[in-house]
Amino acid sequence: MTHDLDEKLLQRIIDMIRKCARLLDPGEEVLPERPLREVGVDSFGLVDLLVMLEDELDIVLPDDLLTPEMFESAATIAVAVTSVLTAG
């Protein structure tokens, strides 16, 4: 799934996830498909991540894109972000 995604975008998203994750050890790897709940992104962390994504990528993620499936992992977030970037 991740081979079609922009690697730089994916890495930026992973870096943002690191800032919102409570359960990551320093240096611990975050694979693109790793569930966010496993790394300790709680509901408020998820909103932090959402605001960070919009600010850093200068996008607005429409409400209908915001689903549990979208916030499953870095890879699923990258798919949604890519759809917004290409539509805009």
């Binding site: 509901s43 998820l46 909103v47 932090d48 959402l50 605001v51 409400d63 915001l66 549990p68």
Partner: peptide, 26 residues
């Protein structure tokens, strides 16, 4: 059903509300 679901048609979800409030506070 979830924190992403609006409270009613044309209403906000919890995620949408917290995003909006966070932006206003910032």
């Amino acid at each position: 059903e979830t924190i992403y679901s609006p409270v009613a048609p044309q209403g906000e979800s919890w995620v949408g509300f917290v995003r909006r409030a966070t932006r206003a506070l910032t």
